[in-house]
Design a binder for these strands. Sequence first.
RNA 1: GGAGUUGUAGCUCAGUUUGGUUAGAGCGCCUGCCUGUCACGCAGGAGGCCGCGAGUUCGAGUCUCGUCAGCUCCGCCA
Length: 590
Amino acid sequence: MNWKKRNAKCGELTQEQISQNFILNGWIHNVRDMGGLIFIDLRDRYGIMQLVIEPENNPELAEKAKDLKSEFVIWAEGTLRLRSNPNPKIPTGYIELLLADFGIVNKSDLPPFEIVDDLETNEETRLRYRYLDLRRPALQRNFIIRNKLYQIMHRYFEEQGFLEVETPILMKSTPEGARDFLVPSRINKGKFYALPQSPQIFKQILMVSGFDKYIQIVKCFRDEDLRSDRQPEFTQIDMEMSFIDAEDILTVTEGFFAKVWKEILNIDLQVPFKRMCYEEAMGRFGSDKPDLRFGMEIVNINEIVKHSEFKVFADTLAMNNGNIALINAKGAGSYSRKQLDNLTEFAKKYGAKGLAYIKFDKGEINSPIAKFLKSEELEAIKQAANAEDGDLLLISSDEKYRSLTILGALRLEMARQLGIMEKVRNTYSFHWVVDFPLFEYDAEENRYVAMHHPFTSPKDEDIAMLDKDPSQAKAKAYDLVVNGAELGGGSIRIHDNEIQQKMFKLLGLSDEDAEEKFGYLLKALKFGAPPHGGIALGLDRIVMTLAGTENIRDVIAFPKTTTGTSLMDGAPTGVDEKQLAELGIAVLKQ
RNA sequence: GGAGUUGUAGCUCAGUUUGGUUAGAGCGCCUGCCUGUCACGCAGGAGGCCGCGAGUUCGAGUCUCGUCAGCUCCGCCA
């Protein structure tokens, strides 16, 4: 094929290289034939360079250039020179390449959308032509960040003495937790592998093997519904260590993030990160992953209204676990009825039956519940909320965690609406959330489920609690939270076979079930398992945070849509009867 | 499993409230002109299953029902 190897990159040429000869390769971004002059914008992944043809001096080349179209791939050879009419808006805007020759390496169909960053083409089209969308500089930049993160991770953990070990992608299905993706076995008809939700059990077993510092960048798979920050396959930085306690894991992790933020964003993170226990995070921010870049904390007013005759409040307080609390949305006092109705709708998504409010607008108090409150109660609420004219108090009265969750969601929503989120962009608040409950009660299944996972160690002082009141037991678990996003979570694991068996029992697993599902782990733990623990960091979400994007699709090269399909290749699809027959599988007619 | 929202030219959108001749605009594309463009400019042109399917109606882009797809959220995500 007729093409020449480039000796320069579009975006990296400089004025110092004037008069030198270069060969560039790239896609044609734009061609402008001005009659007198022909301008060609050439793009590679490093940037854009303008090429010029002077038909007067080179009529054959001008003739040849008539065929050129957007997105053709060409090689271009010429001399770098200063532009007489520079464009300071683009990085290479002061120089141009006077073309001596070029060749069309490949032609291109007309692209279905223009490949520029400020495009607003709908996502469906862009996902269908993902390879074109990925040419956009903004997306290229995200993958440069992602690559840097890989490199820093490998360097850092090797320096710390970690060993990278690969764990199986085809493994045994474990129905606890998320739904598994299943892979049928041809050789063992009727049997299935599962894709790992995480390499959790394998890495623990590696601890038994003496790999006392394990690290892996690993794909994980969960067959659950998608969100803007959740894909069915995603990447984890998975880590585990032996003969350590939680402090060691937090320290190693903090060192890693400090290095990443320094090398990629040139930001010095303060280590160690702050810590907050689960109860406090819920109580103050209504979330186990609170965004600590701003205040608007939840204020409990149970005491203030405990003698209130307002039926909603009285009913709530009569409950076992009733909670009446509020947030103060400063500056939202002029919200209209419609805006407040919308907030109520918003709260209802989180299970609220309604949403009470008190507006302090232009010296007046406006509230549908004011008539039920004594003036000293109103005044006390105002004091407690630190409210002044122009503020809006949003009040939730409900079961404790429900009301906290509602207020936590409203807090984020109000921060968005009031422009607070915009103000704290590009600031980073790292902290650990610790002291999670070991169990969560699942009302539907009428049993306890592990809040983290069933291998999480209870706190030493809570082991006795397992027999008395499991709901009170705390776990040696920790989540890393950055700007309201959970970037990772881990725990000290149970290395004692007996405690592990007790855990399974509390989770409602019979001895037989535990043996059937996790017997291989239980057995391994019997062979001198060292105390161990680790953490899994969500690599995609770390890149999202570094890149400042809200959507995980921006940091994954070939992502899925919200229904789990890939618009580019059409997966998932049906398969040949022959393939199914080989696997011994019949598909039910839908 | 549920809710919201969007779907009209290659792309971005208007038109839907109040059904009515031949469905519009900008960008892009094609042809021509233009010696410094970089959102170039000027003139002309091509381009439509109004997501899909039923229904109501003399008549549906517009109303009704269903359905599909993208996005966002709740549930779910040990």
